[in-house]
Design a protein around this nucleic acid. Structure first.
Lengths: 295, 295
DNA sequence: TCTTTTCTCTGACTCGGGTCAGATATCGTT
DNA sequence: AACGATATCTGACCCGAGTCAGAGAAAAGA
């Protein structure tokens, strides 16, 4: 049933919103060229454009030259590596991009105009909820090295949040310990990747989690965190299951985890996910509750 | 604010749902050809396809021949008018259409798969609400002749609903009276057109309403009806305002209307729209309440 | 009956989007 | 200095989508 409802919505959407958007985005020039204007942003290299839009190198080159002919972009050799060309918008290009933006806004405004303000807001609300659910549906879990920028970004966000949650603050201790604990064969570091365009350089980090070996057959789940903007979408539960699966496939029979009594929703999730409270099994000063689950 | 939210949703939507849909709809053949398979349905004429999809006649012809070459459709002269050609699907064509349908479903299913059932339903719910609000935004009000099939359909639906609402039933009286009352210069008949694909021969009728002259400067609003599926979208209020505008531009200074005390939401709307209760001004046996509003 | 209109089809064409195979220049490494 | 890898560009293509101008057959009107 959800399937047919989604398809029904899709048909309407492409008709009233999608198609038209493309229509007038092409102001005299090929549509692909207009898209480039947005993708260039504050300047990038040709290679970057190429793999962001997944286009043939020759094709991008041609599009850029047509934009150059219209004096909307300018290119120059990248000072660092002069095989590369650095592309940026000219003033006219920035104006054109702003104009396209304005037209898109205008198009949506015109569409919403007949609705009363209350329903306009309601539409925005339901579409935003739909967007978040779609993002949740397209999230991916990836094992990565905990020393990569992506992982460090997640960990730092997590620590910062703990620091502001706990009354006494939070000190992550000496960094680099993660370097061994969360790397195979001792453990894993998992990132929740949100495939929401436009956030560079890597897809938005929606959360993280780690597994590490405690003793033979027993793993510990640590560093579980979901970005505040991505909560309420069922991601924490999916991440937990993913980490349990990882532990299981690494040969563990039980998983443990500790938590602080300030993290109520987390505690609730552990209980409903089959975790039972056990005695303290480590000397983590921030931990007040300890759980275990057989795999 | 709603504007940017809508655009934000659009970007995500075309990426995760829209584009892919087109992608695999083209199973070896040009996309337009696949679309035709759906549009042909249980058989139509070439002209019908042409203006339903708004395509060039030569183009449709070519697409049809390519489908014929694949043995998916067959054409024959229309027995009624042999300038026309009647197009219908072969068995293979029907199978292919079913297969495309299955693939589309599958694609959506795969997308929803990671979501837990509760959130899957929630997504369907919010998308359906969004669809209904978008439909409400794209509705059009049109003055038409009350004797057209479209108008008759609306009126009959309205009478049928009254008949099942009133305990004693409802008898619309001698038909044809509308023929003079709701036609200029004495009055108007307005139809609410819902531009939701697929419902032929005319866009779905979402409601109706009429204005007629009572006495110099005084108009009466009658036959106001919104299709049950289209309620809760603010259409009744917009229709009422549209009818008032029509009365005003026809030179009236006041509008009256009568209603039955069983129609509570309508009564509530009249009160909040500036109508004041007045004494009975006609002998309509179904009316119990009478309202008037200065324009 | 003759003329005009309607409906479909064909051929010739345009255009945007995109691929592919080099050519050229630069960088990194040995 | 030489070699392979990398980044960009150019020219030659292909293909799908769509337009346009008739041609031919049938229907409708005078």
């Amino acid at each position: 049933m959800p399937t047919s409802t989604v398809r029904r919505f899709n048909r309407l959407h492409t008709r009233v919103l999608g198609v038209l958007d493309d229509d007038f985005l092409s102001r005299g020039r090929p549509l692909g060229a207009s898209r480039l204007l947005f993708e260039i942003g504050d300047g990038t290299t040709v290679a970057d454009l190429r793999d962001r839009l997944d286009l043939d190198s020759g094709y991008v080159s041609r599009l850029l030259r047509s934009l150059e002919a219209d004096d909307l972009v300018s290119t120059a050799p990248d000072p660092i590596d002069s095989r590369r060309r650095f592309v940026s918008l000219t003033d006219a290009g920035r104006r054109e991009r702003a104009e396209l933006d304005r037209l898109s806004d205008r198009h949506v405004d015109d569409l919403l105009e007949p609705l009363d303000p209350r329903r306009r807001v309601e539409l925005a609300d339901v579409l935003d909820r739909a967007r978040r659910l779609l993002i949740a549906a397209t999230v991916t879990f990836a094992d990565i090295d905990p020393s990569t920028p992506e992982a460090l970004f997640a960990l730092r966000s997590y620590y910062a949040e703990l620091d502001s949650t706990f009354e006494a603050g939070f000190d992550p201790g000496e960094p680099g310990a993660d370097g061994v604990d969360y790397v195979r064969p001792r453990g894993r570091f998992v990132i929740v990747r949100i495939d929401d365009e436009s956030d560079r350089p890597f897809p938005t980090v929606g959360g993280c989690g780690a597994v590490t070996r405690l003793e033979p057959g027993v793993a510990e789940i640590k560093r579980m965190w979901i970005h505040p903007d991505a909560r309420g979408l069922g991601l924490a539960g999916r991440l937990l299951r993913h980490l349990e699966d990882a532990a299981r496939s690494d040969g563990h029979r039980r998983v443990r985890l500790d938590t602080n009594d300030a993290l109520l929703p987390a505690i609730e999730m552990y209980r409903t996910s089959g975790y039972a409270e056990i005695d303290r099994y480590n000397d983590n000063p921030y931990a007040r509750l300890f759980f275990e689950k057989p795999l």
